[in-house]
Amino acid sequence: MKTETFSAPAQRGLSASAIKWFAIACMLIDHIAWAFVPTLSAAGFALHAFGRITAPCMCFFLAEGYHYTHNVRKYLLRLGVFALLSWPCYSYFESGTLRPETGMIWTLFFSLLAILSYDRIQNTALRVLAIAGCIAATLLGDWPIFGVVFTLVFWIYRGDFKKQALGFILSALVCAAFFSQLRSMRLFAMQLCVLLALFPLALYNGRRGGETHPRLNKWAFYIFYPVHLLLLGLLEFPIS
């Protein structure tokens, strides 16, 4: 990984590792709620509000990861392999069966491809077509469409958090309207809780963190994601 020099002292703020671990905890809370708590109950709303934090944080650090990686092909391969490994786990968690529902890592894979397309395709028409293809592919994943949109916003305005935040807020409003279909103000408000992600992201100090256990921090999300989905799925839909 490349390193940068920052004017702020290293001990201030939150490292990427700290925010990712927080986001993983929020994801676990969210998935437990989907499995066992009525969605629009007071408890369900509160738990899902925390859960909305995860996806924007992962999209943010996907853009950061693309900036720092020395080998984008390996990055894509890692995401692709775990997207496929996560597919049966996510599908079983969602329905107790195997269906073409591929989960969040699938969406992150195509979000990274969208950054790559935006960054390296010079022809505007081909670039738009490639990004549209990435967006369409996420319809099989979790956080469809908006995983790519959030990631592109964070990438395009990288280095200017105010513009990142503004772009994210605008896209989050569309996201909340899309997922709630404006049929329920409570559901709209719950989806709008993605904006809570701005609080930890605003504290990001630009450092990777996790130096004590770098391999654990690198692989934690990839491994935890399918494993926790499988375990929750088995609890929700026990095999008789």
Rank of each mutant, 00 (worst) to 15 (best):
K2F: 07
K2H: 14
E4K: 13
S7N: 11
L14G: 02
S15C: 03
S17L: 05
I24V: 14
C26L: 07
D30K: 01
S41N: 07
A42N: 13
A43L: 15
G44D: 06
L47C: 11
L47G: 08
H48V: 10
G51P: 08
I53C: 00
T54H: 10
A55C: 09
M58I: 08
C59F: 06
F60Y: 15
F60G: 08
A63H: 07
A63W: 00
Y66R: 01
Y68W: 11
T69V: 00
H70P: 01
Y75T: 00
Y75N: 00
L79D: 08
G80C: 02
F82E: 10
A83G: 10
L84M: 13
S91Q: 09
Y92L: 05
F93D: 08
F93P: 04
S95C: 04
S95E: 13
T97S: 12
T97R: 15
L98F: 13
L98M: 13
P100M: 04
T102H: 12
M104P: 10
I105W: 04
T107A: 09
F109A: 05
D119V: 03
D119I: 01
N123I: 14
N123V: 12
V128C: 12
V128W: 14
L129V: 11
A132Y: 07
G133M: 07
G133L: 06
A137F: 10
A137G: 09
L140C: 09
L140N: 02
W143A: 15
P144L: 10
P144I: 03
F146A: 05
G147R: 03
G147D: 06
F150T: 09
W155M: 07
Y157A: 14
F161Y: 13
F161Q: 11
F168P: 00
S171V: 10
L173M: 12
L173G: 13
Q181D: 08
L182S: 01
R183M: 12
M190T: 11
Q191D: 14
Q191M: 12
L192D: 14
V194K: 01
L195D: 02
A197C: 05
F199R: 10
P200R: 00
N205P: 13
E211A: 14
H213D: 08
K218E: 15
Y225V: 02
V227P: 01
L230T: 09
